[in-house]
């Protein structure tokens, strides 16, 4: 069953988002969608920051931009460890300062392995051999195998306790469609967490989304937050 939490105005939107992440405990692993700002579920991230949970492990492609959204969550000291592919950007000063001060751990994962490790978690795959990273420092200490003459390294799944995802439109069954390149990690993360929380700008009645165009089926979605 998917719970749909609808806000009527901006104040209410914050309260609704707060309710959607109110049970995230200290030490949780949280998968957060987005590639830079596109697809970043800012309202849910802000709610997670207000929630005040500590020692979080956060999985995202980047490590925050500017001072809002994920960057603000990092600045609040809630995050013990970042798992990402590309932390260093022109506007990643919040993360850069925390990292240089030794206040945050970093696991750098090649972007495709990051996506596939979450896909594996969502699909019940115990591990997989990837050709990405072979012979590089990011493969050090990992099991290597040659299959049909090509070298691969063993990669383990990344499972989240929670996924925070931004989609475009949901129906009341939790089926989702996304918008353009804001789709990025959303569909994969939605499958890989125990509890998946999705923010959308619009919810429609069940039956109004064409089943042929649904990207994330509602089975993966636990809570939908509608932020106008």
């Amino acid at each position: 069953m998917t719970d749909v939490l609808e806000a009527t105005d901006a104040t209410d939107a914050a309260a609704v988002a707060d309710a959607a992440v109110a049970d995230v405990p200290d030490g949780a692993t949280v998968l957060i969608g987005g590639f830079g700002a596109a697809g970043q579920p800012v309202e849910l991230i802000d709610a997670l920051r207000r929630r005040g949970a500590r020692d979080l492990t956060v999985v995202n492609n980047n490590a925050g931009n500017g001072d809002t959204g994920l960057a603000a969550l990092l600045a609040s000291g809630a995050v013990r460890k970042m798992v990402c592919s590309f932390p260093r950007q022109s506007d990643s000063w919040v993360f850069d300062d925390l990292y240089r001060a030794g206040k945050i751990e970093l696991e750098v994962v090649p972007q495709g392995n990051l996506a596939e490790r979450m896909r594996a978690a969502g699909a019940g795959i115990g591990a997989f051999f990837s050709p990405t990273g072979v012979g590089t420092p990011l493969a050090e200490g990992k099991e290597e195998r040659t299959i049909d003459g090509r070298r691969y390294v063993l990669e383990l799944p990344i499972r989240g306790d929670y996924a925070l995802v931004k989609a475009h439109v949901a129906d009341r069954t939790g089926n989702l469609v996304y918008r353009k390149t804001a789709r990025n990690f959303g569909p994969v993360m939605a499958t890989a967490a125990t509890t998946t929380v999705v923010q959308v700008s619009r919810v429609v009645a069940t039956g109004e989304l064409d089943p042929e165009v649904v990207v994330t089926p509602g089975i993966y979605v636990d809570r939908v937050v509608v932020t106008p």
Partner: peptide, 20 residues
């Protein structure tokens, strides 16, 4: 990665593209 001790490592999709 330049390997410099104070550099923050960031790989993005480069390794996947290189072998793919």
């Amino acid at each position: 990665h330049t390997g410099a001790p104070d550099a923050i490592p960031a790989v993005g999709g480069a390794m996947d593209l290189a072998i793919g």
